[in-house]
């Protein structure tokens, strides 16, 4: 089984702090922005559920806002999370507030919820499941999730950001982020199984 568990001591956090304090000089804005523009657009594209024009508009607004606030950034190493946070705020302020979708109800990750997840062992393993669906269906399944789940899954699984960074971007505590990831994963699994069943690759 390919699961690697990394339990790291608190020294990492201490070293991280020291690095934060030492790095003050910021590179030219355009230089650092271009290095992260692809990631920014990919995230915006997922927020916009694949609507390119909307995503591009979102990226442009984000870049302008980031440019105006760039001097407030203390640490260039945090640029990506900072940029994504601006994108998230821009999205929420300018687009999401017009949405008629009711906000999701967050539930904390509880022991009872996780304990009940034991049934997964009897279902199709993930590798087998993903072999039965198309890339487009994976993307479609993700885009079908409420944006709150879609966001944390993208940041965690695709961008491989830490909970700490995700918390800053979405403005939620770690417990909520973990809960959204877990629930988002469950919904994705269910949706992918549905796609596989529709194509006759999986039985009920």
């Amino acid at each position: 089984m390919g699961l690697r568990l990394r339990v790291i001591d608190g020294g990492q956090a201490t070293r991280g702090k020291r690095t934060d304090q030492l790095s003050h000089a910021l590179p030219p804005f355009e230089e650092i922005l271009l290095a992260h523009l692809d990631s920014l657009f990919a995230f915006a594209n997922r927020l916009a559920s694949g609507h390119h024009e909307e995503a591009e508009e979102l990226v442009q607004d984000t870049c302008l806002r980031a440019f105006r606030k760039y001097e407030t950034l203390r640490n260039a190493e945090k640029f990506k999370a900072w940029l994504f946070q601006i994108l998230m705020n821009t999205y929420i302020n300018e687009r999401h507030r017009h949405s008629r979708q009711p906000p999701i109800v967050d539930v904390e990750l509880s022991e009872a919820l996780l304990r009940s997840a034991g049934g997964q062992t009897s279902e199709t393993p993930e590798e087998e499941l993903f072999a039965k669906v198309l890339d487009g269906e994976v993307r479609q399944a993700l885009d079908a999730l409420p944006v709150e789940f879609r966001t944390v899954i993208w940041l965690s699984d695709v961008e491989e950001m830490s909970y700490r960074e995700i918390c800053e971007i979405v403005g939620c505590p770690p417990g909520t982020v973990a809960s959204r990831i877990y629930r988002g994963h469950s919904m994705l699994r269910e949706q992918l199984r549905e796609y596989a069943r529709r194509r006759g690759l999986m039985s009920d």
């Binding site: 692809d38 594209n45 591009e56 993903f130 890339d135 993307r139």
Partner: peptide, 8 residues
């Protein structure tokens, strides 16, 4: 499996 489309 999720595509990371870059900026044009």
């Amino acid at each position: 499996r999720l595509p990371r489309e870059g900026a044009s």
